[in-house]
């Protein structure tokens, strides 16, 4: 980052990861973080559940509480039929949560800040829930788009509205995650840039004044950890709600 201007978006630039191998195969730093994040999740469960203590230790407690939290969420949202979607929702939740949190560490790449990643996840959720709807209800799933208790002459107007509302789901789902993560990282970078600008332009006085952006950044760090967890939760719970709609049709 230069001293004259704030390069807030440079942190999202894709480079190659994994050294020479990455350069040869266009393996990006984003892919690297995804691999790393997935490895952390798998390793957590392998290591934490190796001993299977009756009274869990910290690691086992973490693993079991995450499991139970997602399991409870799936069952409460979708009912007992939802249990078959639990592995999917849990994988999604763990992947996004670890990605968000890893992205908060300095020099780590936040792969959830790329719309390509969140969009791919959201489109997959959308296609899956649509497929589940047709699988459970056959062609009758199309009745989902005609709201009940509406006079017949309004249906030609309401059905397109419902369909567009349905099709906008993957967009709002992906934009919500991507925008939250990106906005947080940009704000961090901007406040950090203020500090450098203050020191560069006003010397010692600027260094004193830069306590203000520093304090803001510290507060922002706490907020970003909240957002990282919350957005993973929101993504997972919306996935549950969409699957609920597909299973129960209302």
């Amino acid at each position: 980052m230069g001293n004259e201007s704030i390069d807030a978006l440079g942190q999202f630039k894709l480079t190659t990861g994994l050294g020479a191998f990455g350069r040869a195969f266009e393996f990006t730093n984003s892919n690297e973080m995804m691999l790393f994040g997935s490895a952390i999740v798998v390793a957590l469960y392998v290591v934490a559940l190796r001993r299977r203590a009756l009274v869990p230790g910290r690691l086992q407690g973490l693993a079991e509480m995450t499991y139970e939290f997602v399991h409870q969420m799936v069952i409460d949202t979708m009912g007992p039929e939802g249990a078959r979607f639990f592995p999917f929702v849990f994988t999604l939740f763990a992947f996004i949560l670890v990605g968000n949190i890893l992205g908060l560490f300095p020099y780590f790449f936040a792969f959830t800040s790329h719309i390509a990643i969140t969009g791919a996840l959201a489109v997959f959720v959308f296609l899956l829930s649509t497929a589940v709807g047709f699988w459970y209800h056959g062609i009758g799933f199309l009745k989902f788009f005609s709201p009940p208790g509406v006079p017949g002459w309004l249906l030609p107007l309401l059905i397109p509205i419902e369909i567009i509302s349905y099709m906008s789901r993957p967009i709002s789902l992906s934009v919500r995650l991507f925008a939250n993560i990106t906005a947080g990282h940009v704000m961090w970078e901007v406040f950090a840039g203020f500090m450098l600008l203050l020191v560069a332009s006003m010397g010692a006085v600027g260094a004193m004044a830069s306590i203000i952006p520093l304090g803001l950044n510290i507060a922002l760090t706490a907020l970003e950890f909240l957002v990282a967890v919350l957005q993973a939760y929101v993504f997972a719970i919306l996935t549950c709600l969409y699957l609920h709609d597909a299973i129960h049709m209302h």
């Binding site: 509302s165 099709m167 967009i171 709002s172 934009v175 919500r176 939250n180 906005a183």
Partner: peptide
């Protein structure tokens, strides 16, 4: 941000 995304998403589609 969420409400803005909801509104814009439908228009985009």
């Amino acid at each position: 941000m969420q409400l803005g995304a909801e509104m814009v998403a439908a228009l985009v589609v």
